[in-house]
């Protein structure tokens, strides 16, 4: 008997005016699996993630989490499912008016009703899990480097011990060494929590490291998906061009002459 999917998408489509961003996405993510969606800029990766999170409503299709249809959820049901989610945003999206520990403790305090002192201990523990000392908790996000902000954002994403964690371009804007550190932390945190992970990235080193399975999004469709080990012999010309970063191939970048 097959294991029921943690996340299941069927025929999900989303357009902005005449621009069709998603054109019928089918995707299944098993419990405990780490799925990475790759694709060029503007192919709809972020829109796909926002549709699954409920930050954006798809025009059609079905999105199920633990077998529960989420597309037509009301606010209360949405909040209940959101409790299962953790999200690492591309730019960190840390609250700049709050100290680092308050950022990490935000979910436990505001949403779960945890006492501030208890939540502070949780925040310090989570900061420790991403390699940051308690003294960092007293700083404001603007006082941190890009890599440290990503770590704090990761600590915030795992603070409520979510069942599903989403990563939006987790290594964008980081140097290769810091990117690898973040990849290692993601693998460790997801594994420690036993969580399901969905990541979007165009960084192939990151995709190979954090993913069990990879899917490639192109022109609003998942044109290939399979285990990480199969990506180098996918038999798909689009995938080959993308993972090797070639300018020549079936994917044409629209470059306007100056």
């Amino acid at each position: 008997m097959s294991v029921p999917s943690k996340i299941s998408l069927r025929d999900v489509a989303k357009s902005f005016g005449p621009k069709k961003v998603l054109q019928g996405i089918d995707l299944d993510v098993a419990p405990g699996e780490s799925m990475v969606v790759i694709g060029g800029s503007g192919t709809g990766k972020s829109v796909l993630l926002k549709c699954i999170l409920g930050l954006m409503a798809p025009d059609r299709g079905s999105i199920c989490v633990d077998g529960e249809e989420t597309v037509a959820f009301n606010d209360r049901s949405r909040a209940r499912v959101m409790r299962k989610f953790g999200m690492l945003f591309q730019g960190g999206a840390l609250f700049d008016s709050l100290r680092v520990w308050e950022n990490v403790a935000f979910g436990p305090i505001q949403s779960d009703g945890m006492k501030a002192e208890e939540a502070r201990e949780v925040a310090v523990a989570k900061l420790g899990a991403v390699g940051l000392g308690p003294e960092i908790g007293e700083l404001f996000p603007s006082e941190l480097s890009g890599g440290m902000q990503k770590r704090v954002a990761l600590a915030r994403a795992i603070a409520r011990e979510p069942e599903i964690i989403f990563f939006d371009e987790p290594t964008t804007g980081l140097d290769p060494i810091m990117a690898d550190v973040i990849n290692d932390l993601i693998v460790k945190c997801v594994s420690d929590l036993g969580a399901t992970a969905v990541s979007i990235t165009h960084d192939m080193a990151s995709a190979r490291k954090i993913g069990h399975r990879i899917g490639m999004l192109y022109e609003g469709r998942l044109i290939w998906q399979g285990p990480v080990a199969d990506i180098d012999h996918s038999g798909n010309a689009h995938v080959d061009q993308f993972i090797h970063g070639r300018a020549e191939g079936p994917i044409r970048m629209q470059v306007r002459k100056l």
């Binding site: 930050l55 959101m82 409790r83 945003f89 730019g91 840390l94 609250f95 979910g107 949403s111």
Partner: peptide
């Protein structure tokens, strides 16, 4: 600024309206 830096989306993902 919170909107364009995705802090408002972050609030939603932290179950805060």
């Amino acid at each position: 600024t919170m909107r364009v830096t995705e802090q408002i989306d972050a609030l939603t993902t932290l179950s805060t309206d």
